[in-house]
């Protein structure tokens, strides 16, 4: 493999087939990578090699189980948002992430007068009161009392599934960034 910073990932059609087969889910057999290899024309070792590479590069963010959180009783799903001065966002986000009940944290753009919040985090909890107390804990612990905030609980879930991607063959993707 070349070490150029940009190199197509799916130069071999088997890569694309593997990528798509993996998306269907890992086969529930003792040697799943051998089974996937048989489907796409790779050996078990080749499949393992490709997957390790994709994982190290961040192309695969995570391999594992993806749960339907409502089925697990996590029905209090809160999106907590703040309007934080731009210069402070990274610092504050770093503190927010210290709390184990925070599941995701992003900076997003403000949208005029309709939406003036720029820092978002998610808390998935089993009951609303507990999540509300976690939000208070977060605001005090991270010294965010001065900034406007809102907590948006989900009231209904219409659709919950993993995103699916169908990249074109020969898609140009960045080469692996050295794993940290």
């Amino acid at each position: 493999m070349s070490a150029l910073p940009f190199d197509p990932w799916f130069t071999d059609p088997r890569d694309l087939a593997l990528f798509e087969a993996l998306q269907e889910g890992l086969p529930l057999v003792s040697r799943p990578y051998a089974a996937m290899g048989e489907r796409v024309g790779y050996t078990e070792a080749e499949v393992i090699g490709r997957l390790r590479e994709w994982r190290a590069s961040g192309l695969i963010k995570r391999l594992g189980v993806i749960v339907r959180h409502r089925r697990l009783g996590y029905r209090a799903n809160a999106m907590v948002v703040w309007d934080v001065p731009d210069a402070e966002v990274s610092r504050v986000a770093g503190r927010i992430c210290q709390y184990s009940f925070v599941t995701l944290c992003y900076r997003r753009p403000r949208r005029g007068s309709e939406w003036h919040y720029n820092l978002f985090c998610m808390i998935h909890g089993q009951d609303r009161e507990r999540v509300e107390s976690q939000v208070r804990q977060l605001i005090e612990g991270c010294e965010m009392t001065a900034w406007p905030t809102a907590t948006l609980f989900s009231t209904r879930c219409f659709k919950q599934r993993g995103a699916r991607y169908v990249p074109a063959p020969g898609t140009i993707l960045p080469k692996p960034i050295q794993a940290l």
Binding site: Q23, L28, I60, K61, G64, V65, I66, V67, R68
Partner: peptide, 11 residues
């Protein structure tokens, strides 16, 4: 259907 999938989360 407790799990929606068992596989990768792509970037």
């Amino acid at each position: 259907e407790t799990l929606s999938r068992f596989g990768p989360m792509y970037h």
